[in-house]
Design a protein around this nucleic acid. Structure first.
Lengths: 232, 232
DNA sequence: CAGTGGTCTAGACCACAGC
DNA sequence: CTGTGGTCTAGACCACTGC
């Protein structure tokens, strides 16, 4: 093995967990014992345990020991960008409207603002191979540095509209995914004549103080999108 | 501050990144410089940098230095369990059928098996407050220790069916989410009389060798489910 | 009290980048 | 060659746990 010692420790303990030699709740040998077993110093052992803790295999309790963790079986990682998804890529976008509105009660509530604040509303259609596949509405609180040129808005993702490249680490986002039947307006925009379900993805952006700064709702033709997620 | 030094280092660098004092691609001060700046030993500095690397803020290149990373803006974490979701909780399940079938070409393909292998098919209905809200089909490769008592199958999640509590860390899962129009059979099962969209979640389980061991398709009434995800 | 993990030091040697 | 990060040591002191 060219691997460093701490990797060997990690692999060995992973093997024990995966072969049920160590079960969730079981205690991992104390650091001093592992030091002796592998003939290394404590910092090396701790490096290995830190990796295991980080990957969700174990957790440590000061004064007691390290324990095998119950895995989070229901956790998935999903990559979503309104312009790219698992079946198709948006290759074009058309701006339907960009206006400044006063929010109705529902929107004001969702954005946690009073109804006398102004909100920018952007409505777009997304195309793939010339076919309209999604109807997209965004509501943004105005802030300095936002793109105001229509050409910029047309092709921008939510990120690009709100964060002008700057404190992107601080942004928090939530999405919620649902299935809906299109209303007449969306049917017209997406050329839907038969029964067809929409996959509706709502994005909500928060600044570092957890205040909403934008809401986006993208309604995809159900036959043109599939979102995918992975465990790990 | 009662915080350890490495936490201070982490916070300071995070602040610099979030205030754009350090931009993606910029180089982080070398470890030796940080040692001097904070008056600590190198291991302490490295502990801080390791945390930042782990949280996706920086990455290190041996022989060169540490750099600020572009954040993964499109990454979301989603918790999904066929029995629990954001609007409703499945409080009851009814077993429709459990049989052993020979897979058709499509299924054999998806499970990467030959068509002469046997597959267990389980069909269920999920209820909330006595209302059927989802139609669920699972296909499982038979393996030792699987629940065979109907009462067990009825209330089991996918996890519980496949992994009998053992090497759960090794399991990999994928989900894909789509919106569909129900067929006549599902309409009957879910008491759908009007137009209603289905949120369809397909789960696929793989063992540690990346071979599929089970496929599950759960079709929820669109008005009863909403999946949610978070960045971070 | 002894044993545990949490923090930290002041060194060391290595492999690797770039000049 | 110097400077960088990657690995590792052999100690230290602390706070906490459980007896």
């Amino acid at each position: 093995m060219a691997d460093p010692v701490y990797i060997k420790i990690v692999d060995d303990i992973k093997k024990m967990v995966n072969s049920a030699e160590l079960k969730p709740g079981d205690i991992v040998p104390p650091e001093t014992a592992l030091c002796k077993e592998y003939g290394v110093s404590r910092m090396t052992v701790r490096k290995g345990l830190a990796i295991l803790a980080n990957e969700g295999y174990i957790f440590s309790v000061p004064g007691k020991g390290s324990y095998v963790k119950k895995p989070e079986v229901n956790k998935y990682t999903l990559y979503y960008d309104e312009m790219n998804n698992m079946i198709n890529r948006v290759d074009n976008a058309r701006l339907l409207e960009v206006t400044i509105i006063m929010p109705d009660e529902k929107l004001a509530n969702e954005m946690k603002i009073t109804r006398n604040k102004h909100v920018i509303m952007i409505r777009r259609l997304f195309y793939t191979d010339g076919v309209p596949i999604a109807y997209d509405v965004k509501y943004l609180l105005y802030s300095k540095g936002m793109p105001i040129v229509e050409k910029e808005i047309e092709q921008a993702t939510f990120q690009e509209m709100v964060s002008n490249g700057l404190p992107i680490f601080a942004l928090k986002k939530r999405i919620s995914i649902s299935a809906q039947i299109p209303n007449e307006e969306i049917k017209r925009y997406l050329n839907i004549y038969d029964e067809l379900a929409l996959l509706v993805v709502e994005q909500k952006l928060y600044n570092s103080e957890n205040k909403p700064i934008g809401i986006g709702v993208t309604s995809y033709r159900g036959d043109y999108i599939k979102l995918q997620g992975n465990s790990d």
